[in-house]
Amino acid sequence: MKPLPFAPRALPAIIVPILARTGDDAARQAIAVSSHEGVDVLEWRIDPLVVEAADSEQAGVSEQYGGSAWDADLARSYGAFARTRIPTLVTVRSEAEGGHCPVERYTEAVEAAIALRPAAVDVEMGREESARLLEAAKEAGVATVVSAHSWEATPSSQQLDTAFAVMASSGADVVKIAVMPHSMEDVLTLLGATARASQAHEVPVIGIAMGELGRVTRLCAGEFGSAATFATVGAGSAPGQMTAEQVDLVRSILLRG
């Protein structure tokens, strides 16, 4: 297992997502989550804020999306994340990959995320501007997680191997693939591909099977080379997530052998 370059410990990192409709709510959640043991990285999902900004535009009560008011609100809220001293991964999840952000607004939103200078940003591999966004983050000194999500099914072993290889060659610092399993064979397919990718590529990889069937990957994918898992403190961001306390307990047991 290759550790995340922006996580403080050389362990399978526990990343806790934070979703909120306002920056102030996100800031309050970040402060609350930071008091929990075992949390290595905060993931601030800002795509719900993109929706709020768009709604405000339509109502005619805010400046143009991407303007100084929205950027200032984002920066003010990020200040609370920075004060926790826990590394923050800022993510814009598009509607195409299970999130809230309209695809046509995705690039602007990721550019705003990079401007915050967090520890890392997520860049979806499937977006047209992914290569440019990865380069922009690199120039800003921000680490990148290139991601791909298969919400309908689990690709074949060969398809996953190819996807990991293509994403690992993208210039990103971390590669993340999440799939939806329909059988335990699908879960094993994901774990096998993650194990092979962790050995074949220089960058850390994250492999996740979503939903109830994939819960085991939230707990023990680190044993198969996955550099991180996503867990909850409060509301989660994806089906099958477990609490940070549960994941930390299992992680400590596995690490003790």
Results as ranks from 00 to 15, higher is better:
M1C: 09
M1H: 14
P3T: 04
P5K: 01
R9K: 14
A13G: 00
P17D: 06
I18H: 01
A26I: 03
A26R: 02
A27D: 03
A32M: 09
S34F: 10
E37S: 13
V39Q: 03
D40Q: 04
V41Q: 03
E43C: 05
W44E: 02
I46V: 15
L49R: 13
A59G: 10
G60D: 09
Q64W: 09
Y65I: 12
S68F: 08
A72T: 12
L74C: 03
A75R: 15
Y78C: 04
A82T: 10
I86P: 04
P87N: 00
V92H: 01
S94G: 14
E95P: 01
G99D: 01
V103N: 14
E108K: 13
A109C: 11
R117S: 14
A120P: 05
A120W: 04
A120V: 12
E128I: 13
L134Y: 11
L134T: 12
L134N: 12
K138G: 15
V145F: 01
V146Q: 09
A148K: 14
E152G: 05
T154V: 05
T154I: 06
T154S: 05
Q159C: 08
L160T: 09
T162G: 08
A165Q: 07
A165V: 10
S169W: 03
G171H: 09
G171F: 02
D173N: 11
V175N: 04
M180E: 12
E185K: 09
E185T: 11
D186M: 09
D186Q: 07
D186F: 10
V187I: 08
A195R: 14
A197D: 00
S198R: 11
S198Y: 06
V203H: 02
M210C: 06
E212C: 08
R215A: 06
V216R: 03
A221V: 08
F224Y: 13
A227D: 00
A231P: 03
G236Y: 05
S237D: 11
S237M: 10
S237F: 08
D248I: 04
R251Q: 01
S252Q: 14
I253A: 14
L255G: 08
